[in-house]
Amino acid sequence: MTDRGVLVLGGGVAGLAAALSLACMGFEVTVVERERALGGRAAGYACKATDRCLHCGVCLVSDLQDELASATVNLRTGAVLEELAGQAGDFRATVAGTVLKVGAVVVATGMDPAPATGWPDLGYGRREGVLTASELESRLRREGVVDARRVAFVQCVGSRNPAWGRGYCSEVCCPYALRLGLSLIAQQPGLEVTVFYNDLQTGGSDLAGVYEQAGRKLRLLQGVPARAEAGPDGIEVRYESVPDAVLRRESFDLLVLSTGIWPRADAAALARLLGINLDASGFYAARPGESWRSSRPGIYLAGCCQKPRGIAASVAHGRAAAAAVAAGRLEVTGV
């Protein structure tokens, strides 16, 4: 029955949350995931607990994976959507050569981290010890520790600058940098963590304790450095210290670029395939007041493909999209 079928594009946290909710509501759900494994980017991130949970939400990935084990969801990993025909309530989606009949599509294709190579002055790819936050995440997930004593985070790489076409705050980078910093210190006493920032985004009740701890345990410096070079004693960073407007130099062992959330490089191509619109920043455009609905009836949005979101917010948005799909379907069938 076409109408009970839903196609979810993307098996990251938002897609899985949407798929699982829909499955619980009695829909026939098919998840199409480009990669071989489910869980998306968040599945490679590390737990950021100190001696207590800092509410980073990474464990939600395994909660969803567990739920998946006992749910009825069709999984098509290593596959992509090739074609979409029809209309709301009666779509025909071609995936890996086979045609699926579905009533609705949930797009949960996620994001790309800002390409760190776009900031050559910060030395990414050219100096050892300069890495992106996602690289640090996966290193911590695998090894649990870093081989460094002085670690610095540079915030807003690829965010908050209309000149790059990214006139928005990526929302997740300040929280993850502070959490990573605190978690590193808790596991490796003696480590020093510095965070160079523009405006610390510490709003949100999940972060109340994090910010307070960060103020005590991390060095928070306002102002983002423009250059980092190989120096005699590690990576030398030049920055203007804000309260006294003095130019300073300082060396670090590890420079972490807190890269922001960008739309996926193939977002425009998929938007054409789906017949949906993009917004000014290149994310999938949502209807006003309904961030889970795309510009086209029957096609819904979940997670970071619509705007930057953290893990917990992406899961919530996936569920929101599921509720909207279910309500929409019932309207069509008049149940």
């Binding site: 619980c24 009695g26 007041g289 961030s291 919530a316 569920r319 999209a321 509720a323 279910a326």
Partner: peptide, 17 residues
């Protein structure tokens, strides 16, 4: 707005389970 919808999905799942 999204949180309200997400709570609705959770409540619906609770009612069904």
């Amino acid at each position: 707005l999204a949180d309200g919808r997400a709570a609705a999905a959770s409540a619906e799942i609770f009612l069904r389970s």
